[in-house]
Design a protein around this nucleic acid. Structure first.
Lengths: 246, 246
DNA sequence: CGCGGTATTGAAACGCATCAAAACCCGTGG
DNA sequence: CCACGGGTTTTGATGCGTTTCAATACCGCG
């Protein structure tokens, strides 16, 4: 048994009052039309940390999740982390989605979502913008794995994660809560857990950043960006004009 | 001067007779409406191998291109390769697009393309499908860099490239023309040129595949998939239903 | 024929994986 | 309240894969 009492993780409520909608797929539909988006939601769900998520499309409401794939030799590669507001798709290619913390989300009906996008191009463009962001993150990560050493990779990931939670109001410039274990970091960055640990130790010793007890602290932003080879937050714009996608 | 006479690379002609449209963004618009898509094209261009491409959105018509980014220490990371029919966007994040061979393409007007997608959701969804494919490729590559050794990475890339040209009718099961230099492979896979060379040498010695003189030959498909940790062609479907995106 | 870019080969150095073990942390039950 | 136990973090020693540096061979083209 894990916990007998109800979880502290909140379930999503009415779309009209959704706290994460400003960061989510439906951010582009005006408040006057929230009634329509409620109809593409086919349910809500709450899962525990470590549980696999099998729903094919959902928007994360609370907690973190991640997508990963197994390699032939049995190890795991984390492909992306998901934060509240993110639209997550379970793809057909064998990648799995797993809750990183206790988490809750709105399950979307694929067909109704398609209909909606067919009728409202701004939502289709919002969807595209999300894909574009995913691509930008993957490109960054690819560059990390291709051309940065272990310390640089970890530093870069910490900066990326910090930016993502900060944009959602979940952290200030000093840091904030991040539930990543060293194993997640290792699996995302193509490192062994031991080496990810050593890289974090270097960042700690040099007073650049610490990640412990579910908290990330940025001690020296400039120094951290230096070792990360950071090139500033990547502005995604894709083809989405503000006129259409808000 | 490079060449005095006209290039052998063909320039794109009328949209109505476009040979790559079945693989391109506008594959979803019926022949009866090609007139409209001609209007989002703002020009055509021909570039030589090695030239940078600065147009912000284009669909490649002939030849190969690739997107890359410079790392702080001056090396390069290839983020993706582009083949005829691909929609290519020059993003704001410092990544550059370069012609890998002599190449020609249709330049698209960003604003007119946006208008089009705003009016025709099937094109917006086609755009999203392309992004989804990009993402799938990046995920594969990330897995390569994270969890495969040099030989596996090269084998995997060769299989991916083979699939892409084959789907376009540019190769048969045995192989086909691929203009990649070892330096491109190295920069895409996070390897030194020397080691990429050694990996190719292994594949050659084991009679799995050869890449030489601009040609890829698959000698032993099964063996190659074995060392690549290949998991079959990734079916991208995203949210795009056949009913909308054709 | 000779040149510049590309491919190939060798030897040494380095970063990271691996294996092994210990320290730590926290929730749980006695 | 403390001892227990499982998951997580930390540290150390050894080996392997890859980079780096240095040369040499190759190839298409003028």
């Amino acid at each position: 048994m894990t916990r007998s009492t109800s979880s502290l993780t909140p379930l999503p409520g009415a779309c009209a009052a959704c706290a994460v909608r400003p960061f989510a797929l439906f951010r582009v539909v005006p408040q006057a039309r929230v009634g329509e988006i409620a109809k593409v939601r086919s349910g809500v769900r709450l899962v525990r940390a470590g549980e696999a998520i099998r729903d094919s499309v959902f928007t994360l409401y609370a907690g973190w999740a991640f997508t990963w794939t197994a390699t032939p030799d049995g190890r795991r590669q984390v492909l992306d982390f998901h934060l509240p507001g993110d639209l997550v798709e379970r793809t057909e290619d064998g990648a799995e989605v797993e809750a990183l913390t206790d988490a809750s989300f709105c399950i979307l009906a694929r067909d109704r979502l398609c209909d909606f996008m067919g009728r409202d191009p701004s939502v289709a463009m919002s969807y595209a913008e999300g894909l574009s962001r995913d691509r930008a993150r993957l490109r960054e990560r690819l560059t990390s794995l291709g051309r940065r050493d272990a310390v640089g990779r970890v530093a870069h990931l910490l900066l990326e994660v910090h930016g993502r939670i900060q944009r959602r109001g979940g952290a200030d410039a000093r840091g904030g809560p991040v539930p990543l274990k060293q194993a997640h970091i290792a699996d995302a960055l193509g490192l062994s857990v031991e080496h990810a640990n050593r890289a974090l130790a270097v960042l700690r010793k040099d007073n650049l950043a610490t990640l412990a007890k579910g908290r990330l602290d940025i001690l020296d932003r400039e120094g951290l960006e230096e070792v990360a080879g950071w090139e500033g937050p990547t502005a995604v714009e894709s083809l989405v004009p503000r006129s259409i996608a808000g």
